[in-house]
Design a protein around this nucleic acid. Sequence first.
DNA 1: GCAAATATAATAGTAATACTATCATAACAT
DNA 2: ATGTTATGATAGTATTACTATTATATTTGC
Lengths: 228, 228
Amino acid sequence: MDRLLQSIKIGVNDKIYVKDPESSSLGKRIIEDSIIMIHDMGFDKFTFRKLGDRIGSNESSIYRYFESKHKLLLYLASWYWGWLEYQLVFATNSIANAGDKLGRAIEIVTQTTEEDSSFSHINEVMLNKIVIHEYSKSYLTKEVDQENKEGYFEIYKRLVGRLSEMIAAVNRKYSYPSSLASTVLEGSLHQHFLLDHFSSLTDCQEHTDPTDYFKNLVFNCLNKPNHV
Amino acid sequence: MDRLLQSIKIGVNDKIYVKDPESSSLGKRIIEDSIIMIHDMGFDKFTFRKLGDRIGSNESSIYRYFESKHKLLLYLASWYWGWLEYQLVFATNSIANAGDKLGRAIEIVTQTTEEDSSFSHINEVMLNKIVIHEYSKSYLTKEVDQENKEGYFEIYKRLVGRLSEMIAAVNRKYSYPSSLASTVLEGSLHQHFLLDHFSSLTDCQEHTDPTDYFKNLVFNCLNKPNHV
DNA sequence: GCAAATATAATAGTAATACTATCATAACAT
DNA sequence: ATGTTATGATAGTATTACTATTATATTTGC
């Protein structure tokens, strides 16, 4: 990706944080290092105290940015989906043919994040792995309905909506565009997880990856099996 | 389901528990009431202390059966998948035609559990909801590879394997039978979750349910779109 | 350049969690 | 009646996920 990314800002719902972490250097270190730590030790073992120790700051200062580690996870996930949405729109915007557009969209949302844009403090490669391993925990809670009402999942829902519309544009008669879009997004995370931990449960490997699988799946569902 | 269920025992890996909960009445109450409590309050807020209070037993006694609440979740999930596997085999065993067999299999694994068999202390309706809301938490951990080696996910893997073979039997040329099988099982849980909490992300409702969606999806992938 | 405002740090404290350890008692089997 | 096993009661521990308070930097306005 190019330098445009340097200047765009992902618009995370401001109710997710107490103070915008993009507004200070401490905030940026909280984001940068929490990504590394959650990636390395997992969300469950990650604590604000450990993060404070690592960045040479105090636990209480971190609470000035996020009221809980759950909110921090919501923030990281929202940022990731916003970033992916940007990639999606950027890469598909100029494609006129609906089938080509959808094919490109599936590539964007299912492929492994390979490169850190290295323009920001955010390591997208690690963040992608965090989303694969931890995203479900952000909504598999008793508070999900309340938090959904407060808009904490807006970006993700918008992304599913975009994919759903691209699916519908290819075949208006297909009955399940939203279910298929949510299956591709969630299923992609799951296939990548299986690849790492349960390889017998997936056919994806070096030569066939989740992208191939999902393109085949989606275009077969839409009765355009030879499109890509 | 019939009385056969009364006498079969689901063979959960015996490394998951310290003492077999099926071997005593306290053990059975632990299972019975933990299902109700996890269903009602969610796995995160559930504790052995609260369970002890509820069943009039002591926290320390519960630890004689399960060394952690994580192991209890693994037990409940294994039991559920074993039970579902039994349903699957029972319902599809006598079907000769590969397409019919697969269709029935998809119905079994994607439909909402509607009836408590009421032969055992286990409420399958609640357990199904627990699996929808909590199953991911049993493997989204840093210990997953170790626990996988110890066989804690055997039954689930066997179930994916069975479904995968049924898929392959319908179309030997299809390249992704395992990925598709895992997508159906995991995706079904996800669609049921969306139905409850993010209805805008699914097309499943009263008249089209996850079963319809996944039958359409699978048979389209296998190029037998008119089979069911 | 200085005071006021704001941001961050340090320290302490709390209720709950997820256990472990020890000892006592109840039930059950021979 | 005795020994064995299961369960219960109590206490204790390290950690977690915070909150509260006070002190010290740092920045900003004038």
